[in-house]
């Protein structure tokens, strides 16, 4: 393609893009809660002048990281994935 045709193609694309934009608006994938200025996103676990947890001292999160004993509980998504070992598995997000 010559420079000239590149410019024409680009100009056409820009013109088409501007037509696509009319009335389209920004699509959003946000929930209603987030639309409320997403305060829920900001309000949690800010830096605080104290240990954030009222359970302080109770060793609530007392896990032994070396002996891994938890399995992903997962939400009930039914999605087939191909793993590194080449195996296809379905519903891997249900309890293992």
């Amino acid at each position: 393609m010559t420079i000239r045709t590149t410019n024409l193609a680009l100009a056409a694309a820009v013109a088409a893009a501007s037509l696509m934009s009319v009335g389209a608006g920004a699509q959003t994938a946000n929930t209603d809660k987030e639309r409320c200025y997403g305060i829920s996103m900001a309000g949690k676990n800010d830096c605080a002048a104290t240990g954030n947890n009222s359970c302080a001292g109770q060793a609530k999160a007392d896990y032994d990281a070396k002996a891994w004993k938890y399995v992903a509980k997962g939400s009930c998504m039914n999605m087939e994935v191909t793993l590194k070992d080449g195996m296809k598995r379905k519903g891997t997000l249900t309890p293992m």
Partner: peptide, 15 residues
């Protein structure tokens, strides 16, 4: 002492 350890770990997990 475990109050401090718990503050550190629990607050970071929560974050």
């Amino acid at each position: 002492f475990s109050v401090h350890r718990n503050n550190v770990k629990a607050s970071l997990v929560a974050a």
